[in-house]
């Protein structure tokens, strides 16, 4: 299935506001993360330090990702 992911902060600068990737079903946060890492080196550099949120909730690595879910990828930010 195709999953469109909203990007934030430094990943938005490096990659764009969204990125779409193809993930085999049934998908999890981890399998989606692998597809994202393969799609762009800037995402790969963050690894699990950038977090995925699914349907407006922080997601664990084993959480499922279903067609039509709203997915966001959030790298940490520390500025003040």
């Amino acid at each position: 299935m195709k999953v469109e992911v909203l990007l934030f902060a430094s990943l938005r600068d490096a990659v764009g506001r969204t990125i779409a990737v193809e993930v085999p079903e049934p998908a999890t946060v981890t399998s989606l993360r692998r597809a994202l890492e393969a799609a762009h080196p800037a995402i790969a550099r963050f690894g699990t330090r950038a977090k995925l949120a699914v349907n407006e909730a922080w997601a664990g690595e084993t959480d499922p990702v279903s067609p039509g879910d709203t997915v966001a990828l959030l790298p940490p930010v520390a500025g003040g």
Binding site: A9, F46, R49, W58
Partner: peptide
């Protein structure tokens, strides 16, 4: 939320990446 910090240099600081003055 964030168990592990990013490695140094991966996330630019305000001094490196800039920041919109109103944002803070």
């Amino acid at each position: 939320l964030y168990q592990d910090p990013p490695p140094p240099g991966l996330v630019p600081s305000c001094a490196e990446g800039g920041v919109l003055g109103i944002l803070p």
